[in-house]
């Protein structure tokens, strides 16, 4: 068997793949957080809870309505996105004139409510979600056997991240978004309905989280706590990357996932904390974050 740095190659590549999957979730979530922060100036603490709702939504679609994985990949983000739209319209929009910290506290409260309700209804133990038949099995890549579903998650996540980047950086809609992030009143004075843009931005960020949730459903067990364990790590990812750049969020997300995977191979005890350690190093050397802009 091939060995790399004293570690069997399949184990190493396996962990890198797992890292990429975690990285995919980090990237999708931190991307949404960054986009929402840019427009709304709030850190959406409920992001983890909405990720969890995405997973639950696909589970419910399957078990209550009989709608399978692939339709759920579109439907769940749509449904949760609409839920986010309602949240923004009815609750979050009341906060824009206040200190940013209130947005964090409000969405933290939301996260507690959402998670508490799901825990009441479904308990804390996880529920399985079967990998769709088409993505069952594994492919021999020569140096390792790759479970098809895991390859699919990484592929789809990369595509969605790139698509989000392209929408924001390369389209007229994206130009409006970027301009409104810089100077919202001026953009509104040009005739753009900025409040509506804000609402849809929130819904879009939420839909990204829900999409990640659907992708995660067959990998992690679908349970009410799956979001919170992720969101604190995602916060560290956001601090490391800085929220100034879309591509930065994506690269940081995937990169940290891989670092985490490699740590599992070489120093398993530290794998849960390595992202935070990286954050400490970044804070010491580049407090603004790797891709952060000044101020």
């Amino acid at each position: 068997m091939m060995m790399i740095l004293g570690v069997p190659a399949p184990l190493l590549f396996g962990q890198v793949l797992l890292g990429l999957i975690n990285g995919a979730f980090y990237a999708l979530l931190s991307l949404g957080l960054a986009v929402i922060f840019g427009m709304l100036n709030i850190i959406n603490f409920a992001h983890g809870a909405l990720f969890m709702m995405g997973a639950f939504c696909s589970w419910m679609l399957l078990n209550y309505v009989g709608i399978g994985y692939f339709p759920a990949l579109f439907l769940a983000p749509l449904i949760i996105g609409i839920f986010g739209l309602v949240l923004e319209k009815t609750i979050i929009s009341r906060l824009y004139k206040l200190d940013h910290l209130y947005g964090l506290l409000l969405t933290f409260g939301m996260a507690l409510v959402i998670e508490g309700l799901f825990r009441n209804a479904y308990g804390s133990s996880g529920m399985p979600y079967r990998i769709p038949d088409m993505l069952q099995g594994a492919t021999n890549l020569g140096f390792m056997y790759m479970p098809n579903y895991r390859g699919w998650v990484v592929l789809v996540a990369v595509i969605v991240c790139l698509a989000t980047w392209a929408i924001i950086e390369k389209t007229p809609l994206g130009a409006k978004l970027r301009a409104a992030t810089e100077n919202a009143p001026m953009v509104q004075a040009f005739g753009v309905n900025v409040p509506r843009l804000i609402t849809f931005t929130y819904a879009g960020g939420v839909a990204l989280a829900a999409f990640a949730g659907v992708l995660a459903a067959p990998i992690l067990s679908v349970n009410p706590n799956m979001g919170t364990s992720l969101i604190t790590t995602v916060f560290a990812v956001v601090v490391i990357g800085g929220m100034g750049s879309i591509m930065g969020s994506v690269v940081t997300g995937f990169g940290l996932g891989v670092i985490e995977g490699l740590t599992k191979v070489f120093w398993p005890e530290a794998s849960a904390t390595v992202v935070f350690l990286v954050m400490v190093i970044v804070l010491l050397t580049r407090p603004r974050g790797l891709f952060g802009k000044s101020a």
Partner: peptide
Amino acid sequence: FGAWVTVIQGVIFMVCVLAFR
């Protein structure tokens, strides 16, 4: 009431932020 405590805490959080700062 178990998990309802979390829900109630969350609601208090939201009410405090929205109306009772």
